[in-house]
């Protein structure tokens, strides 16, 4: 465990807590894409299949449980909570995210490290996580005005991915056999998707203006 990895996990945890805090306190999910949250729940469900079979560390197990519980409860809140669901803008959140699931699964069948159910589900979750943010980014482009919490949520997600890339670089130079192209490439693709959001996020922060994405 290196500092980049720990910082990445803490940033990822913070992004989820910011989102839960937003939804739980102001009872609103305005600007949040349910589709992205559903994809994240599926990512964690297919990645943490080894939760009860391979014990790595208390930290690892605890974080997996937190991510699973939080992602599914966010989906529940947006879909079923009587007040929150009213603020969900389903007319704007129209990204056909099911079109992301199948290609990721087919790709996982073709490009993986081992042709076993667990490995294919794990690889599928990597590819899916790389594209899971797309519905959210499309929604942000549509709704134009981005409220602070949503902006912070996406920013923290991007920061977690960037820190993970630093973690992989660090591990590559410190652990002799640490080479995982699939993890690195899908993680890089995912981080690049945030690049333009980061650009506009910093522009708005520097010029102290409201964050707006170009149409």
């Amino acid at each position: 465990m290196n500092i980049f990895r720990l910082a990445g996990d803490m940033t990822h945890l913070a992004s989820v807590l910011v989102l839960l805090l937003k939804i739980h306190t102001i009872k609103s999910c305005a600007g949040i894409s349910l589709k992205t949250q559903e994809l994240y729940a599926l990512v964690f469900a297919t990645r943490y299949l080894d939760l009860f079979t391979d014990y790595i560390s208390l930290y690892n197990t605890l974080m997996k449980l937190i991510f699973l519980v939080s992602s599914f409860s966010i989906v529940w809140y947006i879909r079923h909570h009587k007040i929150v669901r009213r603020s969900y803008d389903k007319d704007q959140d129209t990204f056909r995210h099911y079109f992301l699931v199948l290609p990721c699964f087919l790709l996982a069948l073709v490009i993986n490290e081992k042709f076993t159910v667990k490995e294919i589900m794990w690889t599928f979750s990597l590819y899916l996580e790389a594209v899971a943010i797309l519905p959210q980014l499309v929604l942000l482009q549509r709704t134009r005005n981005i409220d602070n919490l949503t902006g912070q949520y996406v920013f923290l997600l991007g920061a977690y991915r960037s820190l993970y890339i630093l973690n992989w670089i660090y591990r590559y130079f410190t652990e002799p056999h640490y080479v995982h192209w699939i993890t690195w490439i899908s993680g890089l693709v995912q981080t690049l998707l945030y690049a333009d959001f980061f650009y506009y996020y910093f522009q708005s922060w520097k010029n102290n203006v409201k964050l707006e994405l170009p149409a």
Binding site: R5, D9, H12, D50, D54, I56, S57, N60, M63, K64, F67, W122, Y164, N167, E175, P176, H177, Y178, H180, T183
Partner: peptide, 10 residues
């Protein structure tokens, strides 16, 4: 702990 295997990441 699985060392070197990226499965130890979240």
């Amino acid at each position: 702990v699985l060392t070197g295997d990226s499965k130890d990441e979240l």
